[in-house]
Write a protein that binds this DNA or RNA. Sequence first.
DNA 1: AACTGCACCTGGTAGC
DNA 2: TGCTACCAGGTGCAGT
Length: 286
Amino acid sequence: MPELPEVEVVRRGLQTWVSGRTIADVQVLHPRAIRRHLAGAEDFAARLGDRTVGDACRRGKYLWLPLTDTDTSVLGHLGMSGQLLVQPQDTADEKHLRIRIRFADALGTELRFVDQRTFGGLSLHENAPDGLPDVLSHIARDPLDPLFDDAAFHAAIRARRTTVKRALLDQSLISGVGNIYADEALWRARIHYERPTATLTRPRSAELLRHVRGVMTAALAVGGTTFDSLYVNVNGESGYFDRSLDAYGREDQPCRRCGTPMRRRPWMNRSSYFCPRCQRVPRTPS
DNA sequence: AACTGCACCTGGTAGC
DNA sequence: TGCTACCAGGTGCAGT
């Protein structure tokens, strides 16, 4: 399940193996993969043809590739299960290959969008004046962005009448955080996922942000080490997921701080994992 | 306007 | 064995 660190690994891969190359042709093998490109598959392919790819960019979980000499970008989101792979052209098609992009050079590789559950996809958009694809106007900066405004974040969540995990997953407040890293950061900060944001003091929200950054930076360090080949990879199975998670997926296993069995609770058609001792349920005088 | 809840997907697995 | 039910969850939008 790609969140910000995994997407950043993919961005780096695209920058290394795709930026600067000129597109020869595009095959859309599943229409749902370009459903956000409203003009359809033929239009998508035609607009990419003969265009050159600029520097790979990211905000939160969104990736985009500007097309040089145009005011447009190819926007990508990996959804739940998406992968962007740079493969030798003679590699057999993946079972869930959705989009193939061939290049006009002789490097012998192509870019493939593979996605089992088809929550992700590619689309082409006009760039807004700030250079971002126009459809990203509602996506906040992510916590690894140097221009992320910690004070504004604190003020925004204090003004909301919602709970802290909802706020962490609200991409208009802070982008790039998903269910896994939200639980990890809340465990590190010893905050219960249902704590009202209005109860967070400035030091507590600062501490939470520090842990969000800490868990993402650690994941990025691990994910980054596996990426040193002709392969832009994201599969949610990096070593980080197996070895380093303290909360997510650890139901009934001892808390790594206090030994209390961790709990899982249904939450928003998902799950929240937490330590019932370290992360006390807030008393809510409604 | 701010907030809540759900549809969209498919493969793996648990249960019967 | 073969069927059903459920789970994973990011996003956008309909509904309140």
